[in-house]
Write a protein that binds this DNA or RNA. Structure first.
Lengths: 256, 256
DNA sequence: TCCTTGTCAAGAGCACCGCTCTCGCTTTAG
DNA sequence: CTAAAGCGAGAGCGGTGCTCTTGACAAGGA
């Protein structure tokens, strides 16, 4: 990490980070639209043109912030899921066998719920960064290829939880789930590669739930709930519980 | 409508509409962020300052466009739902009694699905206007009170479909639906006033589904599905079908 | 009929924006 | 040691939202 060979390299890396930090701070106070290179450079005590040595354009700075945001959210969600799964894994011999089996059955569901809660918590903590990545895309701006890998981290993490559940044998394929059509099977291919072993019907449902999870968070954050579900805590809890049921992550195995 | 008393009033109304139309066109091509008063005035052949006689600021123009967008979407959804409900109402004596009853049972579900499809269709047809109302909120801008009524049109329409279903006795309260907590009952109050007769458990689920529906549309429109559910038609159909089941709008009454 | 009153488009101007180019200076690499 | 590359500063271009002033014009009362 500190492998900046020359002093110039180190200075450059530091200043690049400093620019991103100040930009992120301005993002939090004024929003993405009002983020201005000139204001950032002013706050840093340098002239605006010097900033172009580090980011070729305003959009490139935004792209860097977008990638950072995806990564931060992904890390938060991964940590939350791993926390539950790891904890359940570390104490397998705590109680009698029966209780241990129950625990390992409940762990994936709890990990799923924890991941969903982490998405909401991170979004509420960094609303402008969330808006940057899950709000309307910037007009002329089209997300460069470099964003797709960080962007997929949350989805990959959620799929990982389901795969763990499938491996542990606690993923009950919902009985009323229709087998996906031919077209859908093709579209599910990427998901299948990420989480082999998860039934296609569940993968399809994961696709829906994935989008819908962010729908809930976005509605809360963007103010669509004011007047009704203003603190959306309970609505969110009810929703992600029903999601877990819908995916076959029920603690009551086989139900529904 | 054409009650513009003086010629001046009429000219003013016309020009106001013309400004909105031009702005909407620019919105469709360049996005909200790049919408510029100067460009609008240039296209209209007037000087930029003259535009401030009609809209006190850029944000006010945006507000007008937002309200128009909410109204257009609301009208499209209402039309789609009414089309199904009206059609089912007009031919009650087409077949034998048994068939007629089946039809009236299926109508609310079809109306629900039609409304959801109308949301998606309108969004795909007017992506920038959709982004304006369901994307990230403009930074410093907070939605004025005048937007909340148009904003609620879609939700009211969806609730209306459910109420019709409840009145027709084809809304099967899902058996595994938990009764809302005290807090939630309070939050559901506004929904209850809009759609009296719909069970609270269903109202709660409607709140979730409402947000989740727009989550699906947003993910598709904002490019989150590229690489997987690229034409999202089938995913969307599967999702809204599961929504209808979830709400108790099943054609298979009582199931699930 | 004239004259007041209010509305209008136009223009100049302010402060800000993204971005480009040139100019010296310093650090690096050969 | 020298040439090249990287660096910050400054000037400048065309664009933006917005304000203020000015003069033309139409409507309505005396």
């Amino acid at each position: 990490m500190n492998a900046g060979r020359t002093a110039r390299d180190r200075a450059r890396a530091e200043l690049t980070q400093e620019i991103k930090d100040t930009a992120r701070r301005q993002l939090a106070t004024d929003g993405a639209e009002r983020l201005s290179l000139r204001a950032v450079s002013r706050e840093l005590g340098m002239v605006s043109s010097a900033l172009y040595r580090y980011f070729p354009s305003r959009d490139d700075l935004l792209t860097a912030l977008i990638i950072d945001a995806y990564d931060a959210l992904g890390a938060a969600v991964e940590k939350a899921a791993a926390g539950v799964l790891g904890a359940a894994k570390e104490e397998p011999a705590a109680g009698p066998l029966d209780s241990a089996k129950e625990q390992s059955a409940a762990a994936p569901r709890e990990a799923w719920l924890a991941a969903c809660r982490a998405v909401r918590a991170w979004a509420r903590k960094h609303p402008h960064e969330y808006a940057l990545i899950y709000g309307s895309p910037v007009p002329g701006y089209s997300a460069p290829q470099s964003t797709v890998q960080p962007a997929s981290r949350v989805a990959v993490c959620l799929l990982g939880v389901l795969q763990r559940a499938a491996e542990a044998g606690v993923l009950a394929v919902p009985e009323d789930a229709a087998e996906p059509s031919e077209t859908l099977v093709g579209q599910l291919q990427p998901l299948e590669e990420i989480a082999p072993g998860v039934p296609r019907a569940v993968l399809l449902r994961t696709g829906m739930i994935w989008a819908q999870l962010f729908g809930l968070v976005s509605f809360e954050l963007f103010g669509q709930f004011v007047g009704t579900f203003d603190p959306a805590d309970e609505l969110f809890e009810a929703a992600i519980a029903s999601h877990a049921d819908f995916l076959g992550l029920g603690e009551r195995v086989g139900q529904r």
